[in-house]
Design a protein around this nucleic acid. Structure first.
Lengths: 230, 230, 230, 230
DNA sequence: TATGAATGAGATTTCATTCAT
DNA sequence: GATGAATGAAATCTCATTCAT
């Protein structure tokens, strides 16, 4: 949707992951760094496999092939490893290789590219998104993080909508922020259904990716009354 | 959106709550019925207050003013009480006092009434919806129930969309089912954000209910290219 | 020393064991009462045998022949059982079958009887006193209890000293409270050395009980300049 | 009380701190000596601040600004550092800059000077005395050390009492050793109450130091029936 | 049916001590 | 000697579920 680098949207580079930054000092030695990395990697794997709640700390240390006590050298509890996991993944989750469509200004093309990029990123990180949804239901800290991530997209898209309204391309009757909430939400539910729920239940027709992209794009464009795509 | 009784949508009366029907025989004595009812009522209260995961069985029995052991006379575990709770509430959650707009066939008016009814029902049962979202993340059984509920709306709306397409009122370029998924999803996210998340965090502007209704209705109508609302 | 019932010393019946009264509801059933009693009894035994610090909760439940979890039906932690143990024993520890010497008003005889009673009670409860000394070093709550107990005696004896001063029998040059602190302290150290330390180290001459009584009594009487015992 | 150098009291120079002498070879290098000294100093500080039991080895090494592992180069465990700490302090604790009252032989004046010196030393080392009391409840090794220290004073004072009895100044009816135990104990309890407990609880009237000295001295003198101080 | 105490598996967490660098 | 991460044996505490009364 938008064509600016995400950091510049609000005119400032927001501190990312504010709610999750209770992290302690990074290890000083190489060995320490290795162990910590092994723990984070193991945590991600186990979380994605078993879910946050069913994961016991020892599952993580077992997977990381270290002693139970070693966990506490780097993290105070399950929440903290999860924060580390998300911190490592957030770059890819938040900035989905932006939608700069070469050589065009066509709003529809830009919108489609934006949606495609979002959905690709969602798909790529589907397991982590599933995890985030689960954790957000359980730990307020991560509920805040989920909101943060959602808001990043919503604001970006709101800015895009406002631009198009200014250019006379989008319906001026709707509040850009509210419309963005609704339409961004629409895309994210579709993504959740397709890539999270769609995977869990083997049955059912998996939606075709391109059909997904084109459907949400068309609905979005129509909703804002882009001209000429009748 | 639709104008038919919900049960007839698919041409058959689907067994509601299929995933939740592991319930045992109802109590035979009056006393038993009273105890069971007290437990279900207490469970709903405690679940809504503390969340599913943080609720201990003894919290429920304490609230119901009966002994811990009595619980097992009626339910095998926490899941079963929750099923009972949802079963009692599902009527209101599924059939939001339908949108039969007296004396009009105006698709826009019907759509708006439908959305208003949906959002009102969501708001009315917001705590239960929050609970359902939480539980769906944790117990596959209830994930299925959540899907069931969502699908009921989606199918209903898909039928509505197909009707409008047949009448030439809605854009025929989109698949009615896919469009319904997207647009129904859009409305439900908005509801979740407004009535579940909006309540949890005291800060922030609570969205005005009528603005919510009109925004989602306008976007929906536009997305399907209803004529004449330019 | 004094001849009044201890409760009346301060003109009011002080709430005994104030610092230790975090006890929860007593069990309702007979079975519960039995289990609780078994736990308290077992706790006393194990505490006296192994010391407070080296006692694990499971040692207590093992001794009481019940499951580890049952402990928490009655007590929140080790401190609480200890409080219960001390509560049960406090009567005997605080009111050592008072020194009412029949048919005499002889201050020396009264003093001696008082000291004998004190030392007998100390000896009788020597293991518990040892425990209390240990715990007082570790848990502030019990430090307060120890002080409470000590103060009960000190105030009682201060009252006795003041009486004797009024009757012209005791040296008026000393502050009764300060003198009582010193002399009561003297007796309690002797008791601690004899009955706590004396037992722990098998070697060494165990002091003769009557010699102990007569020595502290003589020193006490002299210190206050009782007349006529030259 | 006594007028002889402490080492000569028993006619022999007793090996001081016998129970604590499991110490290993002193470090050979300067660097080693420095590290060891830092550890002992840190240990004293942390022990006095947090108590023996609540002190973790890493608290000490952190305070000493060295690595956890370095601790084991010099000490086998917590007990050993404590022994080192006490060893360094024992000189001042045992030989309180003796009471040689210039130009007088007045037993009362000597006694008072002796008590003042003892109480001053106690006050000076109050935190260490508190520590010693705590540790004595927990580690038999240090219980023995505490006894050793107490006995040093008791024997010294017993010798003094015997001298005075020989000179006809003190009551011959009491056993000098037993009397010394009682009276020395009296002084030490007062010191403990004033300087250890008195500090812990901010409330309450702190006893005036000189009043303390004069009270215990008067009671002590009276107890032994020093003549002429009526 | 109702009661409420008893059970015990299982998860988290601490920290003295070891050991590779 | 010094470092600081790794180890793993405890110990506490929770709570769903059972069961005797």
């Amino acid at each position: 949707m938008d064509t600016t680098a995400p950091e510049e949207i609000d005119g400032e580079k927001a501190p990312p992951m504010a709610p999750l930054s209770h992290l302690r000092e990074p290890p000083t030695t190489k060995r320490g760094a290795r162990t910590r990395a092994a723990l984070v990697k193991a945590a991600r794997k186990v979380f994605e496999r078993d879910g946050y709640l069913d994961t016991r700390l020892t599952d993580i240390t077992k997977e990381a092939q270290c002693a139970a006590g070693s966990f506490y050298t780097y993290f105070a509890n399950k929440e903290e490893v999860l924060a580390a996991v998300l911190l490592e993944a957030q770059e890819d989750m938040l900035h989905p290789g932006m939608a700069r469509v070469a050589g065009t200004d066509d709003p529809y093309a830009v919108l489609e590219a934006s949606n495609r990029a979002y959905l690709q990123a969602y798909k790529r990180n589907a397991k982590l998104m599933a995890l985030l949804e689960q954790v957000a239901q359980v730990e307020p800290e991560f509920r805040a993080f989920r909101s943060l991530r959602a808001d990043a997209f919503i604001r970006r898209n709101a800015r895009g909508i406002a631009d198009l309204q200014a250019r006379g391309v989008a319906d001026r009757a709707v509040d850009p922020m509210l419309a963005s909430r609704a339409l961004s939400g629409m895309v994210s539910v579709m993504a959740y259904n397709a890539f999270v729920l769609g995977e869990q239940q083997e049955e059912g027709t998996p939606v075709d990716f391109e059909e997904l992209v084109s459907t949400v794009t068309r609905l979005w464009a129509n909703a804002l009354r882009f001209p000429g795509h009748g």
